[in-house]
Amino acid sequence: MIVGLPKEIKKQEYRVALTPAGAGMLARQGHEVIVQEGAGVGSGFADEEYAQAGATLVAGPEAVWEKAELIVKVKEPLPEEFGFFRAGQLLFTYLHLAAAVPLAKALTERQVTAIAYETMQAPNGTLPLLTPMSEVAGRMSVQEGAKYLEAFHGGRGVLLGGVPGVPPADVIIIGGGIVGTNAAKMAIGLGANVVVLEKNGDRMRYLDDVFQGRLRTLTSNPHNIASAVRKADLLIGAVLVPGARAPRLVTEEMVKTMKKGAVIVDVAIDQGGSIETIDRVTTHENPVYEKHGVIHYAVANMPGAVPRTSTLALTNVTIDFVLLLAANGFRKAVEASPMLGLGVNVHRGAVTHRQVAEAVGFPYTPLDGLL
Rank of each mutant, 00 (worst) to 15 (best):
T318V: 13
A244C: 05
I278P: 00
G349L: 12
N301V: 07
V255W: 00
V3I: 14
K67H: 09
A169D: 06
V179M: 01
A122E: 13
I172R: 10
R205G: 05
E76Y: 01
L130W: 03
L107I: 11
G349D: 12
R214D: 06
G304M: 12
L249E: 03
T181R: 14
G180T: 05
L240G: 09
Y117G: 08
H284V: 04
T56F: 00
T108L: 04
G261Y: 02
P247L: 07
L95N: 05
A104S: 12
H153R: 15
V351G: 12
L97Q: 12
A122D: 14
M258W: 07
F82A: 02
P79R: 02
E8D: 07
V239M: 08
R230A: 14
D320L: 09
A122V: 05
L218H: 06
V360N: 08
I236M: 06
G243Y: 04
V41Y: 00
D320E: 15
L78T: 15
F84L: 05
E276H: 03
A114T: 08
Y364P: 12
N193Q: 13
T93C: 14
L70E: 07
V179Y: 01
L95T: 08
L314Q: 08
T283A: 08
L340I: 12
Q212E: 15
V163S: 04
M140L: 15
G154I: 10
T365L: 02
R86M: 06
P247V: 06
L5A: 09
L103G: 10
Q271K: 02
N221L: 12
R110F: 03
H284Y: 01
S43P: 09
D270H: 04
V344W: 05
L90V: 09
A63K: 15
V360Y: 06
S43M: 10
F85D: 03
V64A: 11
L95G: 06
Q89R: 07
R203L: 05
D47C: 10
L18A: 12
P61F: 03
